[in-house]
Design a binder for these strands. Structure first.
Lengths: 219, 219, 219, 219
DNA sequence: GATGAATGAGCATTCATTCAT
DNA sequence: CATGAATGAATGCTCATTCAT
């Protein structure tokens, strides 16, 4: 009876910032600021983004920003947390057993889509991670989740006898996962090297994986 | 082919900045500022680096900076030009014909060393590239040189019949080069994933390359 | 004579603030805010106290504050009025005739206790009095009441022949009253100079009053 | 040979604030800011003083202020340090031996003058000391010096047999010094109680010191 | 009565850049 | 060439106060 909903999250600082809004209107405003921040970060990068831009983009006053966030660093962290959650969901889905080449192809495609849809945030994350420890950490963690998932699958493959034994699963996971991640970065963040559709790309990647890592029946 | 690193250096503006100083003292001062800037960039990143920090680090006055550089951005570009030259030298050395696996291993090792010795600048380059077009371009070019060299070697390999024909040399170069680059980045810039010595790493990479890309006589 | 403490209370403005609340709940809320304000003033001083702190401390919303008080200054005045009333009560009690030394001792003790119990408000009063005329005035008045009471007693003593005639009662009252007041301030507000219990202190003060410091040839 | 003048003071923070100016012009500017700050503090008190007021009063830009001081708190401390020095000089002069009444009178007069000439700073010091620990400490120290000097003199008097033995020198010094200090405060800061010229005041104080107030039956 | 969201004036602060010496 | 003082635009941030619900 006594214990109610508000007991749950609600981490606030002395001045009452970072509060989980209590009214519908409040929640809408916080969301509007998050969305606005994303737009501003996309357009200007972190270094050149101004708090006042975000407030304006959200159609609110300057002070309103500070009801919900401590500063621009804080709102970035909030956005990155949301992104992390998505990445986590992706990483939880285990690889399909059976045809590993197909699994790699599917997984790569899905990852590319995820990266593409969040390329704006990825860019800011990378920009800031060079400098700010907290962001660096968030980034490191989501990368680690991704790599672990690959390592897990490689290890299972070694047990099943379809992955070479002379491969270190963790190191190879870093290399292969990094290869994918980096390519996505080149494509969707830097918009560099636009050779090849996602499908063709997934095909090539799975080919390199397959013949570099997996013992195929061709051998 | 046309684009060469040294094009980027020594542009002078009408106020006479960025000129190669006439006197010995002038040259020494400019050098001191460049070195100081590198230290400051390393310690604080680009966004948080102050012109006054660099002057102080170089043991010079605030105003002295502006005799030699237009602003913070300008001195960064000067540093990156120097780095570009090194990368250019690296990319010019063609791969040894003959044993491709050995070639990959050697080349990877050498690249890793280069990256490690310039990790501080690489970090700033990456930070700023997300935001500033000019830096983005410099970075893109040095990456392109590196990738082209790999593509060149793959194409030659295909002619010689030691590289699979179902590989797109350019795309594969991006993927494999990116894999190496990204790993170096993780190691030396982010200081993440410290699994494995450079040697062991080069070994694993060449193994993945070899069995993923090259038709070996082992098959 | 004319000026009495309760004149300062219960002024209402046209918006209806500072009114004595009609309902029981209203009265309770106002009291809660007053108590909360006292806590906040004690903890942060006037300059750093925030209206929102007081509301929070009282467990009420930000807006609620303004139903009862015009601003931070207003709620301080309300608190000081309450304090004034206490001081007024203290000053009304006349000194016991007869043994003056005993009278001084008793009176000093009682004053010290009063000061100690309200040291938090005294501190804020002193802080703000340096700057705000209204508070300065309130303070001046309560001091004046205290001093007048001493002067009254000195004058009576002169008539009775137990107080030196070469003493100016008003000036001496300021000096001696100020001595007491100041010592209380050092003790209870600044928590400085913790030499001596209240009792010992009262003893010393009455001795100085009674006899002075130097041994004169009159003795 | 190597050790030169600049080794001496020169405490600077990371950004180079609080520097002892190196040129004549710089020294003049810093002085101008200090003087301006004093004016502003006098006119508005600490809480309402603005950094921009001080800059304007000194005829300088906003930013110039920050070359020499961290914030308004910092410039206040600088002013108070200067004041402390003066108080220190005052406290170093020992009391004349011989006629103690004359000594008290002279000393009181001198102290009153000092207080009067610095009443503006004293007011701010008192305002801020209620809240800020650092200022509180500075204030406490100058008071302590003053009190110690009196205690010293009382103790010497006890040895010489001209001061009552039943007086605790330290406690009495607090009380008597506090009496003087407090009266000066009432006179020059609060401009209260304007009964009596400095001379008459000094006379009364020395009388109270010397003889006490009540004619006791001991006489 | 009460809530909490929103506003915006008010100030502080930083730092690239210019300038007099 | 070099110095360091001065400038001022650009922003950040706080908090008293009002308002819709």
């Amino acid at each position: 009876m006594a214990t109610e909903a508000q007991d749950l999250v609600t981490v606030q600082d002395e001045v009452g910032r970072d509060v989980e809004p209590k009214t519908r209107k409040g929640r809408r405003s916080k969301r509007a600021l998050l969305d606005a921040a994303r737009v501003v970060f996309r357009e200007r990068g972190f270094a050149h983004a101004r708090v006042s831009d975000m407030a304006a983009e959200a159609g609110m006053s300057n002070g309103a920003f500070y009801r919900y966030f401590k500063d621009k660093h804080d709102i970035l962290m909030a956005l990155l947390s949301e992104l992390s959650e998505e990445m986590y969901e992706f990483s939880r889905v285990p690889w399909q057993p059976g045809d590993p080449k197909h699994s790699v192809r599917e997984s790569t495609l899905r990852y590319m889509e995820l990266y593409r849809d969040n390329a704006d945030l990825m860019r800011v994350e990378i920009e800031v991670a060079q400098t700010e420890l907290t962001v660096h950490e968030v980034w490191r963690e989501s990368r680690a989740m991704f790599f672990k998932r690959i390592a897990r699958s490689l290890r299972r493959g070694q047990k099943e006898g379809i992955v070479r034994k002379d491969i270190d699963p963790d190191l190879a996971a870093s290399l292969l996962g990094g290869m994918t991640e980096h390519y996505a970065y080149l494509q969707y963040v830097l918009k560099d090297e636009p050779q090849g559709s996602p499908k063709r790309l997934a095909e090539q990647i799975s080919r390199i994986w397959a013949n570099g890592v997996y013992l195929t029946d061709e051998e």
